[in-house]
Design a protein around this nucleic acid. Structure first.
Lengths: 142, 142
DNA sequence: TTTATTTAATTGACATATCAATTATATTTG
DNA sequence: CAAATATAATTGATATGTCAATTAAATAAA
């Protein structure tokens, strides 16, 4: 009978968990006070500041409920400002504050280092194959 | 500048999240009242009923604190019994109840179906490559 | 053997995930 | 236009993840 360890989904889970812990540890060690998830949401807003919370959720593979709460924390921390949109009062204008921009800048080198360390000695071809197989899995279950 | 979407870690995260949602939905739809995480812990105990909570945590890539809480829920639900070990009173004897065994049995076909649907049209070679690249990533960050 | 150290598990605090219900607003339809 | 429907976001409840502090027991060291 197959053991849990043999299952590919365990490797996928293990790799992403290990990467998250590794990345978060490096960020915290650098004295940057933000979680990877908060950064991810902030970065998504930076890339498109007219995006809706629903679309942020979709883009980050999170739930809209989680996005509401993460945005709340980002506002509390002073990285983000949030105001009702006049055109559609169900939605919000989300804008990075100066501090928000600063922290995105500050994170950049760590993100790079984390990624390159995690992918050390792995060829482009391997990455492309990895990506392609993962996309197959994703499309199989949608 | 690279967009979030291009990053391989997003595909890894997306695939595992999609798989978990897909699997959980199928289980719930079948009227089985257990979470994937609870099942995972129960299955781990079934495979080795002398395992410590610390080792369950290690094996499932979870935190010992989470294991404590998940075990509590499994006991509450009547799937697991927990008694102090006489040899080492810091530890517990964890044993599946009849109901626990029944639910593991009941889950089995769904687990199989979920896995085979997710891996449909993906060759063994691809899976092996996926596994091997993921293991490289894991070892790079440990 | 008493004390110090290590180990296993728990607990508290906070962040995030998920689902269902709710609120507020916008859009569609009769 | 008024009523019905759809959409965006929030909120509550429960589960899990993570870290730090704590408790209880076992083991090692003085």
């Amino acid at each position: 009978m197959e053991k849990l360890n043999d299952i590919i989904f365990y490797s996928i889970e293990k790799s992403i968990k290990a990467y998250r812990q590794f990345a978060q540890k490096n960020i915290s060690k650098a004295g940057i006070e933000i979680t990877i998830d908060q950064w991810l949401v902030l970065k998504t807003i930076e890339e498109d500041n007219s995006i809706s919370q629903k679309d942020i959720a979709h883009k980050t593979f999170k739930d809209v409920a989680s996005i509401t709460r993460i945005i709340e924390l980002l506002v509390q921390k002073g990285y983000l400002s949030r105001n009702l949109k006049s055109e559609d009062r169900r939605r919000f204008d989300l804008t990075l504050t100066n501090e928000g921009n600063v922290i995105i800048e500050k994170m950049q080198p760590y993100i790079q280092i984390n990624r390159s360390q995690a992918l050390k000695n792995i060829t482009n071809e391997e990455i492309m194959n990895l990506q392609s197989t993962l996309l197959k899995i994703i499309s199989n279950i949608n």
